[in-house]
Amino acid sequence: MNWQDYIVSDKEVLLGKPIIKGTRISVELILELLANGWSERQLLESYPALSIDSLRAVFSYLKDCIQLELYGDVPA
């Protein structure tokens, strides 16, 4: 999957946070909702601009961030 087809960053939108292309839905929001127990179905129903592919792109983006070590230290 090419996450760049779905995720962009624009300093004029949400202070440059990564967002789903064409929306103001941030990667951070999607992860927060998933961490709080939301299902894929709930996300797709609540945010019609999202697609299964855009949700998959979030995980592909995170995988690349981890591989590039674009993350902070995790306290023990």
Score class of each variant (00 low, 15 high):
residue 1 M to L: 09
residue 1 M to A: 09
residue 2 N to Q: 07
residue 3 W to P: 13
residue 4 Q to N: 09
residue 4 Q to L: 07
residue 5 D to C: 02
residue 5 D to M: 03
residue 8 V to H: 00
residue 10 D to R: 01
residue 10 D to F: 01
residue 11 K to M: 01
residue 12 E to L: 02
residue 12 E to T: 04
residue 13 V to S: 00
residue 14 L to T: 00
residue 15 L to V: 06
residue 16 G to E: 00
residue 17 K to Y: 05
residue 19 I to V: 14
residue 21 K to A: 07
residue 22 G to D: 00
residue 22 G to S: 00
residue 23 T to A: 00
residue 23 T to N: 01
residue 24 R to M: 07
residue 24 R to G: 04
residue 25 I to R: 04
residue 25 I to A: 03
residue 25 I to E: 04
residue 25 I to G: 04
residue 27 V to K: 03
residue 27 V to G: 12
residue 28 E to F: 11
residue 28 E to A: 12
residue 31 L to M: 15
residue 32 E to M: 15
residue 32 E to G: 13
residue 32 E to Y: 15
residue 32 E to Q: 14
residue 32 E to C: 11
residue 34 L to H: 05
residue 34 L to D: 05
residue 35 A to I: 06
residue 35 A to P: 00
residue 35 A to G: 15
residue 36 N to T: 08
residue 37 G to A: 08
residue 38 W to N: 12
residue 38 W to A: 13
residue 39 S to K: 14
residue 39 S to N: 04
residue 39 S to T: 15
residue 40 E to Y: 05
residue 40 E to P: 08
residue 41 R to Y: 07
residue 42 Q to M: 15
residue 43 L to H: 08
residue 43 L to W: 07
residue 43 L to S: 13
residue 44 L to H: 10
residue 45 E to L: 12
residue 46 S to D: 09
residue 48 P to G: 06
residue 51 S to P: 01
residue 51 S to H: 05
residue 52 I to V: 14
residue 52 I to G: 08
residue 52 I to E: 10
residue 52 I to R: 10
residue 53 D to S: 09
residue 53 D to P: 02
residue 53 D to M: 08
residue 54 S to F: 09
residue 55 L to S: 10
residue 57 A to F: 09
residue 57 A to G: 13
residue 57 A to C: 06
residue 58 V to H: 12
residue 58 V to F: 05
residue 59 F to M: 10
residue 59 F to W: 11
residue 59 F to G: 12
residue 60 S to V: 15
residue 61 Y to Q: 03
residue 61 Y to L: 09
residue 61 Y to E: 12
residue 62 L to W: 07
residue 62 L to T: 11
residue 62 L to D: 05
residue 66 I to M: 15
residue 66 I to P: 02
residue 67 Q to W: 11
residue 67 Q to L: 14
residue 67 Q to C: 14
residue 68 L to I: 06
residue 68 L to Y: 08
residue 69 E to H: 15
residue 70 L to G: 05
residue 70 L to C: 12
residue 70 L to W: 15
residue 70 L to Q: 11
residue 70 L to K: 12
residue 71 Y to P: 02
residue 71 Y to T: 08
residue 73 D to L: 14
residue 74 V to Q: 06
residue 75 P to Y: 02
residue 76 A to N: 10
residue 76 A to Y: 05
residue 76 A to H: 10
